[in-house]
Simulated assay, not measured.
Amino acid sequence: MYNIIPYTPKPSWNKGKLVGQKLPLKLEEVWSIRTRLDLANNLRELTMFNLALDCKLRACDFIKLKVMDIAHGKSIQSRAILIQQKTGTPVRFEITKKTQESLKEWITLKSLRSNDYLFGSRMKKGCHLTTRQYARIVKTWVASIGLDITSYGTHSMRRTKASLIYKKTKNLRAVQILLGHTKLESTVRYLGIEVDDALELSESIDI
């Protein structure tokens, strides 16, 4: 007679984990992280942090950025363009002065050439940083200022500046262009603005 072993279902992959959109950073949180990286003389991660906020790219595109994508010779561009891996469509992004400065210093320090990845893997020579490595770095940033790491991720870097721009201008079309979304509905869902905007509008009407 065979012993029947009762089936024990495996726990779901997301049990105990927060699932959903990752939160964007607030302005004061951005400066807290930037200050810590600066004080630690962590030029690599400071450059990574500044550029990730400016470019608003998905992780899969960000990790593959090369020197040639953001520089002409030794001159860092103030604006750049990249073909998105997910959609195959181009997206433009700005590179602010502080990001240009950290990029120039980083490229010089590492003697990077035009065809080199900006952020190479420390495990495999000639390869770019992986999305997993990038995700771990982002979690160290948010943990350094006491935030819950389960609420933030690489998409937080993509959402942060877009969210701040929308809150300041309410220009949804501009944010759509900056994120490289083909449909406005995608931007609305991405920012999660429908409920907040509806409530804000309702609160402004006194009857």
Rank of each mutant, 00 (worst) to 15 (best):
S12K: 11
V188E: 13
A71V: 11
T187V: 03
T160R: 11
L82M: 03
R189T: 08
E185H: 05
W13K: 15
L57N: 04
A162H: 07
Y7L: 11
T8L: 15
S114E: 12
G16C: 06
I137G: 00
W13F: 14
D206W: 13
L199S: 13
R79G: 01
D38C: 06
L201Q: 11
E28S: 13
L53I: 14
S204A: 15
K26R: 12
R92K: 13
T140G: 03
S114A: 08
H128D: 02
Q77C: 14
N14I: 10
M68N: 10
A52I: 06
E29L: 05
A198M: 15
E200T: 07
L109A: 12
H181N: 07
Q85A: 08
I145Q: 01
A162Q: 06
I33L: 02
R113C: 07
K86W: 04
S114H: 04
V188L: 08
Y152T: 00
P90S: 12
M48D: 04
R132Y: 05
S75Y: 12
G88H: 10
L164V: 06
R132K: 10
L27P: 04
A71Y: 09
L109H: 09
F49E: 02
M48F: 12
T108G: 05
R132E: 09
M68E: 15
T150N: 10
I5M: 05
K98M: 09
M68P: 00
N171C: 10
Y152H: 00
K168P: 01
V138E: 02
L184Q: 11
E101I: 13
L164D: 04
Q176Y: 06
S151A: 15
R79H: 07
L18P: 01
M68F: 08
D197M: 13
S102R: 06
L129C: 02
A40S: 14
S78A: 11
L109N: 05
A71W: 11
T8A: 14
A80D: 04
T187I: 06
I149E: 14
N3E: 15
K124C: 08
I4L: 13
L179N: 04
L23Q: 14
S156V: 08
Y2N: 11
K15A: 13
E28F: 08
A198N: 15
P9N: 09
K74Y: 12
S12A: 12
S156K: 03
G16I: 06
F49C: 04
L82S: 01
Y117T: 14
N14G: 05
K22A: 11
D196F: 11
S12P: 07
G88Q: 12
S202G: 05
G20F: 04
K22D: 12
M123K: 15
C60W: 02
L179A: 05
I33A: 03
V91G: 00
E45I: 01
Y7F: 14
K66E: 12
V30Q: 02
K97D: 10
Y2L: 11
K167R: 13
E185M: 07
I33T: 05
L103P: 03
G73S: 02
S202A: 15
E194Q: 09
Y190F: 10
A143W: 04
L109G: 01
Y166I: 07
K168Q: 15
L109K: 13
I63E: 04
R36T: 05
P9Q: 13
E105W: 00
S204L: 11
V67E: 01
L82R: 07
K86N: 08
W141N: 01
